[in-house]
């Protein structure tokens, strides 16, 4: 097991190296002089020289790269051109806003998606199966911005049950410890604030959960159908084991590996910032942050944003790979 983990972690280094080179090169993909483009047409030569120096563009390529990686390793993600603030400090709260939204959305997606898939496979070719599959098809086909707008129209505007945008009410002032507001409010005993935060997260997380939920349901169903045909499931039934246990113990564990893969990919995608959802719901997340940086041509922020998203994606897949070995004992020995 240890050897597997070490091998799998060593495999990260080439990926992270490639990623850093790509992200670093973004600045060179800009046609013309990056400093000029950042500052606009009417910039003075002095100002351009200033920015070039600030970005290190007057140094040779490899020195720039090593400086860049060296800075990354000390946690320095550069300085925002727009705000002049440290990118790391600005990015962190946005990242955690997205993390919180993703965790809630994925919890909904996994719980409903996996169970719907199981029921669908268990009751294969019945009305329940068809119903789940129709919902799953609608789920994957529905544009998330449309779903978000409909949710707002129905639950915020017409029914006034839930707030339509933002992370909290204007008057709610959460004291950030972890920046995950649900946890912050709970550990500080601010139950009124917790309720407010919870009410705000429902609509965006449901909108965000829909597509992963549908994909997870479809994968779970097909994987379960395969497994339920296998000989060892017949063996379990021949032992007189209850149907529920055959399905949730014997079948699910065997069917779960492709489901985990999909969950990992979907979680990575959501963490990368769901720009549409975050924009519609005014969620101050990573997607919005990167989007605003693109609008402002704030290249250091774009670079760091992409780097953080890609790194998260790689690490989520690492976790999924390690979980494979927990689920399937055969993987350790290969």
């Amino acid at each position: 097991m240890t050897a597997y983990i070490i091998r799998r972690i060593l495999m990260l280094f080439p990926v992270l190296f490639g990623m850093s080179v790509l992200v670093f090169s973004i600045i060179y993909l800009i046609p013309g002089n990056p400093a000029q483009i950042m500052l606009g047409q009417r910039a003075t030569p002095e100002a351009i020289a200033e920015v070039e120096k600030q970005l290190g563009l007057d140094q040779p390529f490899y020195i720039q790269y090593f400086d860049y990686v060296g800075n990354l390793l000390t946690g320095d993600l550069g300085t925002s051109i727009k705000t002049k603030g440290a990118v790391a400090a600005e990015l962190f709260p946005h990242l955690l806003a997205t993390v919180e939204l993703t965790i809630v959305a994925m919890t909904i997606a996994i719980f409903i998606g996996v169970n719907a898939g199981i029921i669908s496979a268990w009751l294969h070719n019945t009305i329940a199966d068809y119903a789940v599959m129709v919902f799953a098809l609608v789920g994957v086909s529905m544009p998330v911005f449309w779903l978000g707008l409909m949710e707002q129209y129905i639950f915020a505007v017409e029914l006034s049950w839930l707030p339509s945008t933002s992370r909290t009410n204007a008057l709610t002032d959460v004291n950030p410890i972890t920046h995950l507001y649900l946890i912050d409010t709970l550990i500080q005993g601010e139950y009124a604030q917790f309720k407010d935060v919870l009410r705000h997260i429902i609509l965006p997380s449901v909108a965000l959960a829909t597509i992963p939920m549908a994909i997870i349901a479809r994968i779970t169903r097909s994987s379960m159908l395969d497994v339920m045909k296998s000989d060892y499931i017949r063996t379990a039934r021949a032992k007189g084991v209850k149907g529920f246990i055959v399905v949730y113990k014997h079948s699910l564990r065997n069917a779960v590996i492709p489901v985990m893969t999909v969950i990992g990919l979907q979680a990575g995608l959501l963490l990368g910032g769901a720009i549409l959802t975050e924009t519609i719901f005014g969620w101050p997340g990573l997607g919005r942050y990167i989007y605003d940086a693109i609008q402002a041509r704030d290249y250091p922020v774009i670079q760091s944003g992409i780097l953080v998203v890609a790194t998260i994606f790689v690490f989520i897949n690492l976790i999924v790979d390690l979980l494979y070995a927990v689920v399937d004992p055969r993987i350790k020995y290969n």
Binding site: S230, D231, Y232, R234, T235, A236, A238, K239, H250, R253, N254, V327, D328, P329, R330
Partner: peptide
């Protein structure tokens, strides 16, 4: 009434 099957390679659950 118990039963044993033809394929010992696939008749046992690989994960338990």
């Amino acid at each position: 009434i118990a039963m044993i099957f033809q394929e010992p390679m696939t008749s046992l659950n690989p994960l338990f």
